[in-house]
Amino acid sequence: MKKKFVVAVSVAASLLGVVVATPAQAAEAPVYFSRINYDSPGSDTRSNVSLNGEWFRLSNSTKKAIQLKDFTVRDTANHIYKFGSYVLNPGKSVTVHTGKGTDGKPAATDRYWGSGAYIWNNTGDTAILRSATGKTINSCTFGKGTATNC
């Protein structure tokens, strides 16, 4: 029964344009992509609400706080988001929305790319997380309708 539930959740998530990490993937990197909502709900209108419906979430798999200052996230077209000073606490996550907003609102864990255009391709893309020194920490490749987990 548990296996059927996991498959159903994976299929439902892929239909919603959400990519979800597995526990094994979380163990591979101290900071990892735990979810990517690469296809915002509804029509792609380029409104700020629609842009902010596209987002990625990074999670800390360690028992230590990690300073994300100067960490970057990029896609295959080399759109780059660079973190300012931000501490990701142990076992916690931070969500970065594509559009504009005020960092820390509505929740302290919300951040904003500030883009006026969509970043993640709905047909497939790769998200790459790099440390302040440029070392690749984690990546996630996904395609439209796939059950790919990050």
Rank of each mutant, 00 (worst) to 15 (best):
1 M>Q: 12
3 K>Y: 13
4 K>T: 12
5 F>T: 02
5 F>R: 03
5 F>N: 06
9 V>M: 07
11 V>D: 00
13 A>H: 04
14 S>R: 03
14 S>K: 03
14 S>A: 03
15 L>V: 06
16 L>Q: 10
17 G>R: 03
17 G>P: 00
18 V>R: 01
20 V>F: 02
20 V>S: 00
21 A>V: 11
24 A>K: 13
24 A>L: 15
25 Q>I: 14
26 A>Q: 04
26 A>P: 08
27 A>G: 12
28 E>C: 12
30 P>Q: 10
32 Y>M: 01
32 Y>G: 01
33 F>Y: 00
36 I>E: 01
36 I>S: 05
37 N>K: 07
37 N>P: 14
38 Y>V: 09
39 D>T: 10
39 D>A: 07
42 G>L: 06
42 G>D: 11
43 S>G: 12
44 D>C: 08
45 T>F: 11
49 V>Q: 10
49 V>F: 14
50 S>H: 07
50 S>D: 11
52 N>A: 12
54 E>F: 07
55 W>E: 03
57 R>P: 09
58 L>W: 04
59 S>L: 05
60 N>Y: 04
60 N>M: 02
61 S>E: 10
61 S>G: 14
62 T>K: 01
63 K>W: 09
63 K>T: 06
63 K>M: 06
65 A>C: 13
66 I>G: 04
67 Q>C: 14
67 Q>D: 14
68 L>F: 03
69 K>Q: 11
70 D>N: 02
70 D>S: 06
71 F>P: 13
72 T>G: 09
73 V>R: 00
73 V>G: 00
73 V>I: 02
75 D>N: 05
75 D>G: 01
79 H>T: 12
83 F>Q: 05
87 V>P: 15
88 L>K: 02
88 L>E: 08
88 L>C: 07
90 P>C: 02
90 P>K: 06
91 G>M: 02
95 T>Q: 13
96 V>P: 04
98 T>H: 07
99 G>T: 05
100 K>W: 09
100 K>I: 14
102 T>P: 14
102 T>I: 14
104 G>M: 10
104 G>R: 06
107 A>L: 12
107 A>E: 15
107 A>R: 15
107 A>V: 15
107 A>H: 12
110 D>P: 08
114 G>M: 07
114 G>N: 05
114 G>V: 12
115 S>D: 06
115 S>T: 08
115 S>W: 07
116 G>I: 13
118 Y>G: 09
119 I>T: 05
122 N>S: 11
122 N>K: 15
124 G>Y: 01
126 T>K: 01
127 A>Q: 00
128 I>C: 06
128 I>W: 10
129 L>A: 01
129 L>P: 00
130 R>W: 08
131 S>I: 02
131 S>W: 08
132 A>K: 03
133 T>A: 14
134 G>K: 04
134 G>C: 03
136 T>N: 11
136 T>F: 11
136 T>L: 10
137 I>P: 09
139 S>G: 11
141 T>F: 02
144 K>M: 09
145 G>H: 04
146 T>D: 05
150 C>Y: 03
